[in-house]
Every structure is written in structure tokens, then in C-alpha cells.
Design a protein around this nucleic acid. Structure first.
Lengths: 151, 151
DNA sequence: TACTCTATATATAAACT
DNA sequence: TAGTTTATATATAGAGT
């Protein structure tokens, strides 16, 4: 993993902890996305930073998975796997700053690789295609808005 | 990671997919626990297997975190940044579309239909993804030009 | 504050039991 | 079907910018 051994223990230094939180949250979201892509499993991850910010990852969407989870629990309340660290339920008071930023992104831009494969002969054609695609998208957006205003 | 490169693509073989799901779910839960212990952050993970089984990890508890998440979303529902799942789904769609463009360049444009399938929740995210994709393409173009001038 | 860069620690795919 | 092993792919802590 890194230069030193990991030591799963609370990091005391605030700024180091923040950096680690960001890095590991990204890693966690990426793993969740891979689990989704590879195994066709629906996955949701929610993380609250000490500052109280909420970060969520979910495919197809966080809220739909939460609903589904709640329903599953109703049906069979024994689903939950309580894996909890001993230090767990302890503190967690630090942040109640209610400026929740539901940030996102697990990393994953799979088209990166596709783009890198493009050669000189293709890159121009692709750009043109992109322009057309964008027009299409804008039109689609208008169509949706028009439908919405008809409700 | 393993004997072969990872290939983030759906695993077709049922039993292999099941094995991978189990291993990766365990890994994901472990990572979530480490994030909790090291950074004092509260984390919940929910995964549904293809078979429909629900698996959850949460500290202090899944349901308390879900409530907290729902409240956070209520407090700032107007935030432009889409929830992770929507972004990732959009990213995947954008990637799929690009693949089609690359495959069919010069020929008919099959992504037309794909665009028309996009719904309200996705269209914005797709636009954002398109912007990023375009940046990538421009960078790739520069790379090619730079190589060419070095000949 | 937020990147990038690597040396290492971990995770894990496939093989094997 | 499930646990163990091992060769590699990934993730990431710390340092540098």
C-alpha cells in the first residue's frame, strides 16, 4: 500500500486524516464501481466525513438502492451484517455543519482508454462526431424539458 | 491484483462471477471498515448480488446512516452535482457511445438512438461527461501532433 | 490546498486442494 | 462448493512541487 505499514488506527493529525479520507474514499468508490461493472451487482456507498459532509456513490442510484435495502430489511430483518469495529459507535460528534455537499465520482472514466487508442486519421472524425452527438444531446434535453412543462 | 489484468467488464461465467462477487464484496467491506477506523468517518455499504441478496456494512449502523443520508439530501436537494450513481451511469453511457463512434466512424451513426434513450436524470450528467471526454480528445490530438513534430 | 510521484502494502484471479 | 496459495495488479502513505 504505501511507504509504511498500515496500522488501522485513528489518524490523529487533522490534515493527514483529511488527505487519507479523500484518497480512501475515492478508492472505495472505485472498488464499488468495479464490483458493479464486473458482477452486475447493484452497490451503494455512503460516507460522512468528520466535517459532516456526505459523500455517496451508487449505481443505478443511491436513493433507489436505499429504498430497496429498506424494503429488504422489512422482509427479513436479519440481513444486516453488523461488522463493526470496536472503536466504532464511539465519537463522531465533530461535524454538524449542515452544508452537505453530496459529492461524487468513483474515478472510472472508461472511455479514457478508448480515446488513447485513437490515431491521427481518426481524431478529427471523432471530433466532428462529438459535435453532432452534442447537438443530439441538447435536442434530447429540450425534448425532456418540453415534456415536463406539459405535465 | 491477480494473475491476469483486470478488465472491468461484466464476467459472463456465472460461477466465476459469484466467486468474484464474494471476494470483492469482502474486500469492499474491509476497505469501508478501514476508512471508518482510520479517519473516524461513518460509512455504509450496501450490495445486492445478482441473485437479489442484500449485503450491508455500516458503522455505527446501516439504518442510522441511511437516515442521515436522506436528511442530508433533504437539506440541499438543489445541489447541481448529481448523485454518484447518476454520474457513473452517465459516464458509462458516454463511454459506450464513444465506442460506437469509434467503431462506426465513417459509417452510420448508431449512437443517435442511444441519445434518444437518455432520461432527464442522465442528460445533464452526460453533458458533463461529454465535456470531459472532449478535453481528453483534445489532449490526445496534441499528443499526436507533438509526436509528429518529433519525427 | 491540491497535485504528482514511487516504494510498498494490499487485494485478488486463477490454480490448486 | 469452499478454503489456501501465489503471481501480479492495484491502492495508497509519504514525500516532493
Amino acid at each position: 500500500m504505501a511507504r509504511r505499514s498500515v496500522e488501522i488506527k485513528k489518524i490523529e493529525d487533522r490534515s493527514k486524516r483529511q488527505v487519507t479520507f479523500t484518497k480512501r474514499r475515492q478508492g472505495l468508490f472505485k472498488k464499488a464501481g468495479e464490483l458493479h461493472s464486473k458482477c452486475n451487482a447493484d452497490v451503494a456507498v455512503i460516507a460522512f466525513s468528520l466535517a459532516g459532509n456526505a459523500y455517496a456513490f451508487g449505481d443505478p442510484s443511491v436513493s433507489s438502492l436505499l429504498d430497496r435495502y429498506n424494503k429488504a430489511v422489512e422482509v427479513s430483518p436479519d440481513i444486516e451484517i453488523p461488522v463493526a469495529g470496536e472503536v466504532s459507535t464511539a465519537e463522531r460528534k465533530a461535524g454538524e455543519m449542515l452544508e452537505k455537499v453530496v459529492e461524487t465520482r468513483g474515478g472510472r472514466r472508461e472511455w479514457d482508454k478508448e480515446v488513447e487508442k485513437l490515431g491521427e486519421a481518426e481524431i478529427d472524425a471523432v471530433k466532428v462526431a462529438m459535435e453532432e452527438m452534442k447537438k443530439k444531446i441538447v435536442m434530447q434535453q429540450r425534448r425532456i424539458l418540453a415534456e415536463a412543462s406539459n405535465l
